[in-house]
C-alpha cells in the first residue's frame, strides 16, 4: 500500500515535470517562429523593391512608386535635432546625478523621480505636448524642428539613465586619485571619467537613436506628413516611420513600398546597434592598450 502511494506521487511529479517542460518548449517555439515569420515576411516583401533608385528618388503617386529620399533626409534631420538637444542636456544631467549629488540627497531624488515619470509617459502624449508647446505655443508649426524637439524630450530619460549608470560604473579609485592630486572635477570628468564611461555613453546614445527612429505617434502631429524634400528645419518633414504608417493606412496599394521602407528602417536600426557595439568595443580596447 505504502509503496504504491509513493509510486503514485512520484508518477504525478514526473508528469508535472514533463508537462512544464513541454509548455516551456512550446512557448519558445511560438515566440521564435512568430519572430521568424515576421522577419522573413518583411524581408521577403520588402527586398524586391529596394535598390539604389528607392533610396535616392522622391516618392511618386503618394509613395506607391518612386523612392524615399526626402523621407530619409527628414528622418536624419529630425534625429539630428533631437540628439543635438538631448545629448548635451542628458550628459550634463547624468553628470550632476552621478558626480555631484549625494546618494539619498534631495535634488537627486526629485530629478530622478521626474525622469522615471517622464520615461513612463506614452509617446502619443509627447505628441500632444509637442503639438501644443512647440507647434502652437512657440509657433514652430508642423516642422522638423518641432518633431525633433518633441523626440528630444522623449529620449531624455533613457539618455540620462544610461549615461548615469555608465558613469557610476567607473571605479571610484580614479575619482579619489584625481581629487587627491587637486584636480578639479571638471578636468577629471573630461580627461578620465567620461572617456572611461564612453562605451556606456555611446551605447545609451544608440539606444536613444533607436527609440527616436522607431517613433511614429509623437511625430504625426508635430513634424507632419509632407513628403517633399525639406528645405529647412522649419519645413514639415515625414519621418520614415510616419511614411510606413501612411502607406499602410491611407494609400491603397502602398503595401509594397511600406514593406520596403520597413526593411530599410529595420536595417538602419540594426546598423546603428552594430555600430554602437563596435564603437564601444573599440573604445574599450584603446583604453586598455594605449592612451
Amino acid at each position: 500500500m505504502h509503496s504504491l502511494a509513493v509510486y503514485r506521487s512520484a508518477h504525478r511529479i514526473a508528469l508535472r515535470d514533463r508537462t512544464l517542460q513541454l509548455l516551456v518548449l512550446a512557448a519558445v517555439v511560438v515566440i521564435t517562429s512568430t519572430f521568424g515569420w515576421l522577419l522573413l515576411d518583411i524581408v521577403w516583401h520588402g527586398a524586391n523593391r529596394i535598390g539604389w533608385e528607392f533610396l535616392t528618388a522622391a516618392p511618386r503617386s503618394a509613395g506607391r512608386n518612386g523612392g524615399i529620399a526626402p523621407i530619409l533626409l527628414a528622418t536624419v534631420l529630425i534625429l539630428t535635432v533631437a540628439l543635438a538637444v538631448s545629448a548635451p542636456l542628458g550628459l550634463a544631467t547624468a553628470i550632476l546625478l552621478s558626480e555631484f549629488s549625494r546618494p539619498g540627497g534631495r535634488a537627486g531624488y526629485w530629478i530622478g523621480l521626474s525622469l522615471d515619470i517622464l520615461a513612463g509617459v506614452p509617446s502619443i502624449v509627447f505628441g500632444l505636448f509637442g503639438n501644443a508647446f512647440f507647434c502652437v505655443w512657440l509657433g514652430l508649426g508642423f516642422s522638423i524642428l518641432s518633431g525633433g524637439l518633441t523626440l528630444a524630450c522623449m529620449v531624455l530619460p533613457i539618455l540620462i539613465r544610461t549615461a548615469e549608470s555608465g558613469l557610476r560604473t567607473v571605479p571610484n579609485d580614479w575619482r579619489l586619485g584625481a581629487a587627491a592630486l587637486g584636480i578639479s572635477k571638471a578636468s577629471a570628468l573630461v580627461n578620465v571619467l567620461i572617456p572611461a564611461a564612453a562605451p556606456a555613453l555611446v551605447a545609451g546614445l544608440m539606444l536613444g537613436i533607436g527609440r527616436a527612429m522607431a517613433e511614429t505617434a509623437a511625430l504625426i502631429f508635430t513634424s507632419g506628413y509632407v513628403d517633399r524634400m525639406p528645405a529647412s528645419l522649419l519645413d514639415s518633414g515625414r519621418a520614415i516611420s510616419v511614411h510606413i504608417y501612411d502607406l499602410t493606412m491611407n494609400v491603397a496599394g502602398g503595401d509594397r513600398s511600406a514593406y520596403a521602407s520597413a526593411l530599410v528602417l529595420i536595417a538602419l536600426l540594426i546598423l546603428i546597434n552594430g555600430a554602437a557595439s563596435w564603437l564601444a568595443e573599440r573604445t574599450l580596447k584603446r583604453r586598455i592598450t594605449a592612451s
Binding site: L96, L115, V121
Partner: peptide
Amino acid sequence: LLRWLAFAAGLASAVLILIVLFL
C-alpha cells in the same frame, strides 16, 4: 561647471512640468 549642470538638470526636469502644465 556645477552651475551649468544644475541649469541643464533643471531644464531636463522642467520637461515633465511643462508636459503636465500644457496638458
